[in-house]
Amino acid sequence: MIVAEQKSFDEISKMVESFDKVLILGCNECVTVCLAGGEKEVGVLATSLRLLRKQGDRPITTLEETVTRQCEWEYLDQIEKLAEEADCIISMACGVGVQYVAERFPDKWVIPALDTKCAGGSVKHGQWEERCGMCGECILHKTGGICPVARCSKRILNGPCGGSQNGKCEVKDVDCIWDQIYKRMMALGRMDQLLEIEPEKNWSKARDGGPRKLVREDVMIG
């Protein structure tokens, strides 16, 4: 899933200070699971904004809604009337959702309430870690199901580097993922695979090649 984190309240409140009626729009997908932009977080942000603005001479009216997915037009169609009522929309979705909302409601000012962090998962309650680098060409079959693109600080494809010390990374306080890859391959009896040198990766399939677009004519309708 996409992992996101709420911006500081101070930052959000500054972005909405010139608006009197806002629609706070949550998303029921990834950001609900990572506790950043679901129905509950919408409620807390709305109440917080009202509490702040009630103390001044410019109270704020909040409209609250959470849609199934902000990254699909059909769900945004359902909030058309709410959006019309509001001066601006605070999207509590990832960057994708924010852009869909902005595109669907071109005359509305849209504010992002979250910082989108990575494609990852929850390793325990309250802790999320990056797992996929979205490089566009998966190599997990070569590395025992552990991704060096997303989880090695240097994205090394033939690791580990010389900075791997006692299973820890030299760049930041994380496990050396190449150490993990070696341990797993050893356990699986596939160490010989690691002797093969991985050639340079075609990064043009990743974000480095520009914005990516997928077209599948077989599933197109209409």
Binding site: S48, L51, L52, Q55
Partner: peptide
């Protein structure tokens, strides 16, 4: 923390 943020 939230109450500090909102000034209450």
């Amino acid at each position: 923390k939230v109450l500090d943020d909102v000034g209450i």
